[in-house]
Simulated assay, not measured.
Amino acid sequence: MEIFRSLALVVFICAATFSWAQKNDLGVWYMYFGNNKISKKWNWHNEVQYRNFDAVGDLEQLLIRTGIGYDLSENNNNVLLGYGFILSQPYVNGEKKENIEHRIFQQFITKQKFGRFNLQHRYRLEERFLQDDFRMRFRYMLGLNIPISQKEMLPKTWYASVYNEIFLHFDSSVFDRNRVYGALGYVINKNLRIEAGYMNQLQESRNRGQIQIGFYNNIPFNKN
């Protein structure tokens, strides 16, 4: 029963953020992240993000990413090669346009633990094949998960999640954007967790907030 009460509270938080988004013209991103072991060293990354200009129905971007990763050390220091498909529908002079991007990316993730603080560093290089252009971009993210209701990130644990990520171009306009995020999360079991939070995205020409609802799946596919 405890898990159902906890999940009901998460759903309530999500419903409140939907209402807040509609009243304040914030976007909402619905996100699924899978990171599944396929052997002792190898993992499969799978990800879908459905991003809206409002709470639901006004598509801003559909992002699908996948990749194969390899642990350089046990459950840490992971290198990954991946591909992303991005369908964007921005407003240009009041009218919606459609853009498609194909993206290849390479990344390195390393984790550290200091007491309750679970840190993650992610370094990502992207080769972006746009409809009429090619660009390269570097991203660095520093993320932090802090368990609240228990000392460790164990099942039935509430936790706080924060991150900062900077995006840099490989051309004269180096700065692309910066994202700052804060959320409340719940560990359902050792392989599943859910988060609801707020992200502020700063770009050269605009500063916009996003509500984010994320589901994380780490169920292993290998027998062990």
Rank of each mutant, 00 (worst) to 15 (best):
Tyr159Phe: 15
Phe12Lys: 04
Tyr50Phe: 15
Gln107Glu: 09
Phe105Thr: 09
Ala21Asn: 06
Leu81Thr: 05
Gly82Arg: 07
Gly209Asn: 05
Ile109Phe: 00
Tyr83Ser: 08
Ala16Leu: 09
His102Tyr: 09
Tyr83Ala: 10
Glu127Met: 11
Val92Pro: 02
Ile13Lys: 03
Asn78Pro: 00
Arg208Val: 13
Arg128His: 05
Leu7Pro: 09
Phe105Arg: 08
Asn191Met: 00
Asn46Phe: 11
Asn93Tyr: 14
Phe138Arg: 05
Asn217Pro: 05
Gln201Phe: 00
Phe170Met: 08
His102Thr: 01
Val92Glu: 14
Asn75Tyr: 04
Trp44Asp: 00
Asp171Ala: 15
Gln89Asp: 05
Phe175Val: 12
Asp71Val: 00
Ser172Asn: 15
Arg128Asn: 09
Gln49Ile: 12
Val11Arg: 10
Leu192Arg: 05
Trp158Tyr: 10
Asn77Cys: 01
Ile104Pro: 00
Leu184Met: 10
Gly69Pro: 09
Met141Pro: 05
Phe215Tyr: 10
Ser173Ile: 10
Asp71Glu: 07
Phe12Ile: 10
Tyr83Arg: 10
Gln89Ala: 06
Lys113Gly: 01
Ile3Pro: 04
Asn77Met: 05
Gln131Thr: 14
Ile213Asp: 01
Ala15His: 00
Asp132Trp: 04
Asn178Cys: 06
Asn224Glu: 11
Val79Ile: 14
Ser88Pro: 02
Thr157Arg: 02
Met199Phe: 01
Asn191Cys: 02
Gln150Leu: 01
Asn218Gly: 09
Tyr30Arg: 01
Phe175Glu: 15
Ala160Val: 06
Asn222Arg: 05
Lys41Ser: 12
Gly84Phe: 00
Met31Thr: 14
Arg206Val: 09
Asp54Tyr: 04
Arg135Gly: 10
His45Asp: 07
Phe4Val: 13
Ala21Ile: 07
Glu98His: 11
Gln89Phe: 02
Asn189Met: 03
Phe138Val: 11
Val56Trp: 12
Val56Met: 06
Gly84Asp: 01
Arg193Ile: 00
Tyr70Val: 07
Tyr30Gln: 06
Phe108Trp: 10
Phe170Ala: 14
Asn224Tyr: 05
Trp20Tyr: 14
Gly34Thr: 06
His169Asn: 15
Glu95Trp: 01
Ala21Lys: 03
Phe215Arg: 01
Ile188Leu: 10
Ser161Thr: 07
Met141Ser: 13
Lys151Glu: 09
Trp20Thr: 04
Gln201Trp: 02
Gly209Asp: 04
Leu80Trp: 02
Gly57His: 07
Ile213Trp: 11
Asn145Cys: 02
Val187Cys: 02
Asn189Gln: 08
Leu142Lys: 03
Asn200Asp: 06
Val28Asn: 06
Gly27Ile: 04
Asn93Met: 08
Asn76Glu: 04
Met31Gln: 11
Glu47Asn: 08
Ala21Leu: 07
Ile64Asp: 00
Leu80Cys: 11
Gln107Gly: 11
Asn217Arg: 01
Glu98Gly: 03
Val28Tyr: 03
Ser88Asn: 13
Phe4Gln: 09
Asn52Glu: 08
Tyr198Val: 01
Tyr50Cys: 02
Trp44Glu: 02
Phe134Leu: 11
Val180Asn: 10
